[in-house]
Write a protein that binds this DNA or RNA. Structure first.
Lengths: 193, 193
DNA sequence: GTCTATACGAAGATAGAC
DNA sequence: GTCTATCTTCGTATAGAC
């Protein structure tokens, strides 16, 4: 068994609260209460709020890499793997309807605050972007793979945003279905040039 | 000339700050400083922050209605009018890259705060949705017009989100072009059934 | 490594003078 | 309708005891 350090607990609690409530709206007392720490002790682990944010982003980057690696192993074909990505919208539907996409909403908030960590948070997008790009290359798209990656990323962001505003499950299902159809249509023709 | 009331000035300053910095991150002092008011006097006009938010949303709804009405007059065909909508992504590119979509980011923030006004803010989306839906009906889509409206709304949200994160003008142009092509492809066949 | 106590400023909000 | 003064709460941050 892995002993969960206090630091880890703080990062996980902060991660959750930042996602559910937002970075600005989350206070130290808020996080400390979840972990069961006094506010004073908090500063032993993190000196400033920005330090916690950096730790949370690093934690999310690490979790995301692990998830992408898992999809790499599970999916038989690149197309299957991309479907894993699209399906997050279904898997996390309830959370997305309540709090939006964790990546998109964090990037938006940090952009507004013009926060030093805004580009660091965007690395989360880059992780997905590069992974998707590689899948499209593996399908056979020697050119345009990155454009395809951005397109599918864009769609998932759009669906998440409207899912939060309208909380319409049928809409989410429909758009996921449409994304999968689009994906199928992107298979390069097997006929020779 | 229209005498700008202090109340109007407050609403417009709050509107701008809420968009550029976010609702939570904007303080009374912040808005008061822009208008040139003391904090104390502020409360003569608005009792709570939520009251300002409601006034800002009402103001945005009114501005949006005026914009949609203008597009209605300017655009010769429904397709032209929908293009006006798509083109906001180009027109407001710089602002979107810095602060995201005003509607999407507000809805996201209020959803996280589980704020009483979150559904009120979503009415801004509904305005666009219904307007787009009507355009698609006018094109000739007796069924599915709302689905088309949601699809185009979804795409514009997705583009805005990634524009903020990556600040890539080429990406925005490419996706706008792709949306316009999609739109053209949605013209119902003129051939009889 | 964890606690209590405390400093400090910012923010929301109120009372009352002008 | 605008101001100053004031209150309270909260959030960030520090010092120092256990």
């Amino acid at each position: 068994m892995v002993a969960t350090t206090t630091r880890q607990q703080i990062v996980e609690a902060a991660d959750k609260r930042f996602y559910e409530r937002g970075f600005e709206a989350t206070s130290f007392a808020d996080i400390a209460a979840v972990v069961g720490l006094s506010r004073g002790n908090f500063y032993y682990h993190f000196k400033t709020k920005d330090e916690i944010l950096e730790a949370v982003i690093a934690h999310r980057l690490s979790k995301t890499r692990a998830m992408l690696d898992a999809w790499e192993v599970e999916g038989k074909t690149p197309t299957d793997r991309i479907r894993s990505f699209i399906n997050i919208l279904i898997m996390n539907q309830a959370k997305i309807m309540a709090h939006g996409c964790p990546v998109g909403t964090l990037c938006n908030e940090l952009a507004k605050l013009d926060h030093v960590a805004k580009n660091r948070a965007a690395e989360l997008f880059t992780l997905f972007r590069n992974w998707l790009s590689r899948q499209f290359r593996d399908i056979g798209h020697d050119t345009g793979a990155d454009e395809f990656a951005m397109h599918i990323l864009m769609r998932s962001q759009g669906v998440a945003a409207l899912a939060t505003a309208f909380r319409d499950e049928a809409f989410v299902r429909r758009e996921v279905e449409d994304m999968c159809q689009w994906l199928t249509a992107q298979q390069p023709t097997s006929s020779p040039k």
